[in-house]
Computed example of a mutant assay.
Amino acid sequence: MTFSGLRITGPDAGPYVLGQPLDVLDGDLHLGRLNSVSLSPGGELLLDDFRTTDLSRMGTWRTARLVVVEILSFFVYRFPSISTFGISLSADIDALQATAGAAARLAEARTQMLQSVGASEIRMTPRPHPRHAAHFVVSAAWHYNTDNAQLLAEVLAQERLAYAERRQAGAAQAAPAPAPPRSMIGRLLAKERHNNDNPAAT
């Protein structure tokens, strides 16, 4: 089956209404939530407090990257009257921040992701954190124009493809070994019958 994207809903799996938190799912698997959506007096839509589900279980930072790109794409195409989006990424990810320097690497990865979709005014701001040293908030603005829309569409397609490949690989690992072809089973049974008929055969 071709993977065509994640499912985005409002709270309790209902239709999304602007201003509500937003959930991201793959089928019934919850991947993340955007907790804060607000419209500034100047008409900028502010997207803050992205939270991904247990990333150690999902296995890769790229799943969180897909969640952010899916959410931005959803707002861009669902609400065409909004042309400027403020994005703030600050959630800690324990699976990626358990080693020295990991928080800075995560902030850099977030910066590169925002750059890849055409975001500008990117800022990396230190923020004290009770468990992780050098915790950073990465914020940016994304302005709608033809070039940025093209970049966003290309990155969305790339991340969907990478996610589909990871999902397919995971399913292949979890699947039981396939049964031998029927013709092979027949040959093995024939050999067993032959050996039973001829005890001396080896």
Rank of each mutant, 00 (worst) to 15 (best):
R123M: 14
S116L: 06
D92L: 05
E121A: 14
S88D: 04
A102R: 00
S120E: 13
Q112N: 14
S81W: 15
A95T: 07
S120G: 10
Q115S: 12
D94L: 09
R123F: 12
A104E: 12
Q115N: 08
A91F: 06
F85Q: 02
A95P: 02
Q112E: 15
A100T: 10
R105E: 14
Q115I: 08
A109H: 06
A102P: 00
E108L: 06
T84L: 09
Q112D: 14
T99W: 12
A98I: 08
A104D: 12
T125D: 05
R110F: 03
A103Y: 01
S120T: 11
Q97N: 09
A100N: 07
L106E: 10
T125G: 00
A107L: 04
R123K: 13
D94S: 09
V117D: 06
S90Q: 12
E108I: 01
T111F: 08
L96D: 00
F85Y: 07
D94R: 06
Q112S: 07
E121H: 14
R123C: 13
A102F: 00
D92R: 08
A109G: 09
Q112Y: 11
S116T: 05
M113Y: 04
R110Q: 15
Q112W: 14
A91I: 03
T125K: 06
S88T: 09
Q115K: 14
A109R: 10
I82D: 00
M124N: 07
A91D: 11
R110K: 09
T111A: 04
D92H: 10
G86T: 05
A102W: 00
S81M: 15
T125Y: 00
A119R: 04
I122R: 04
S120L: 06
A102E: 04
T84R: 12
T99H: 14
R123A: 15
